[in-house]
Design a protein around this nucleic acid. Structure first.
Lengths: 219, 219
DNA sequence: TTTTATTTTTAGACAAATCTAAATATTTAT
DNA sequence: ATAAATATTTAGATTTGTCTAAAAATAAAA
């Protein structure tokens, strides 16, 4: 598999994860920052390799085989991100582009040893699950901070948007994975939330709250 | 720079290091496992980027700029090899192919942090020097074991041939970098050497002895 | 249910990196 | 110094991944 093929497989995986079902040519083209005609070409190549099912005008869907490939690439991406943060002191907003390159390195031994070095992590620095060799990964019950009722608490476990801009914004507000957040009040006017983290009380916009995952805490 | 361009630059560097002066198309083609015509094409591209000096039928030579690029790639290659051995428990005969891939990853931050994680090593697992950011590296006075006179001792510091076959052969004979070797006797008939490592006395072929570097020890 | 708009595919072209085969230059040997 | 051998370059083709522009199919709207 070429880098490009791997990137398409990963793209198809992420898009079918979000909107279930098959992925349209245009959607994939937008995601890959390329033209629909290029996508059609590539889809045909991937279909030839049995990595996707493709019928003209019907969009693409990963085959079992394609899905496993996708998960293996995602596994590498997330292990490398974890490595960069844990071992090389990268900030969580600095890892994405480098991991995009590292995920294409071909060596099973490398991946296995890296996994061991990191002590077999279940989640990456953004809270996303790291699939194992067979593509299996842990899911956890999480909800958007935006959907946490007043008085309820949750532990910050992940982000929807993992852009550097958003992550830096969280840093600036002193919000990190692992933090316990209590919703004090919901402002109906702009959907902003008054929250408490540790001893600090402050307000976060709806935009922030709907991009942060929390694991609800019973209380 | 594409991966291919980087590989050519590195190839030219290694070949001009060995046989000084300019590198011929055929020599480079053999080294790159490709055809002379492909080399000519690539050389023109590199000349266009001011990385090599090229005059038809006269071979190539790296420019100042090209040389620095080569050393930066070699730096990455050797840092990654060191990482694989030191942190991921690879054997020194298992690192080459993976490092060939990793050397193309583009991120100055990654290289700097990796260097720090490894505590700024001067030499890689094969005893080759690791250039710094500016391409500078340590040289040491070393000679071939084959050229060490009877009664003289040396510390094993590097290999000429770093193929897996040779390295495994050294492993099998219990010869490792850092070992102190004393030449007991030179067999004129086949140029083999009787040597002592620790308390073990044994004989090594001329082939082995002329691929092992030692740092002479005064005695 | 036609017409219109949108999506998707095809056809043809291009750049990168390679190849083979042919042409040209250089080197070696006679 | 000329012929023979070797090395190098050019010309033209191929593959991968992309593009634009045009054609075809599907979906939406009147």
């Amino acid at each position: 598999m070429t880098h490009s093929e791997e990137n398409y497989i990963k793209g198809i995986y992420h898009l079918s994860e979000a909107g279930a079902g098959s992925v349209s040519t245009t959607t994939l083209a937008t995601h890959m920052e390329t033209k629909p005609s290029s996508v059609t070409d590539m889809i045909k190549r991937l279909a030839g390799k049995e990595l996707v099912n493709y019928k003209k005008y019907q969009g693409v869907r990963l085959t079992e085989q394609g899905q496993l490939k996708a998960l293996q690439i995602i596994r590498k991406h997330r292990l490398w991100e974890t490595f960069l943060v844990e071992k090389l002191d990268f900030n969580w907003d600095e890892v994405h582009e480098v991991a995009e390159q590292l995920e294409h390195i071909k060596s099973d031994m490398l991946v296995d040893r890296l996994d061991a070095l990191l002590d077999y992590p279940d989640y990456d620095p953004h809270g996303d699950p790291i699939p194992d060799k067979d593509g299996a990964f842990k899911t956890r019950d999480k909800k958007l901070l935006a959907n946490l009722g007043p008085g309820k608490s949750g532990q910050c476990v992940g982000v929807v948007d993992s852009s550097a801009a958003y992550l830096k914004f969280l840093d600036k507000h002193g919000i990190a994975l692992g933090d316990s957040i209590t919703v004090l009040e919901r402002e109906e006017f702009d959907q902003s939330l008054k929250i408490r983290i540790g001893t600090r009380n402050f307000s976060v916009s709806q935009r922030i709250a709907s991009n942060l995952y929390v694991k609800p805490i019973e209380n």
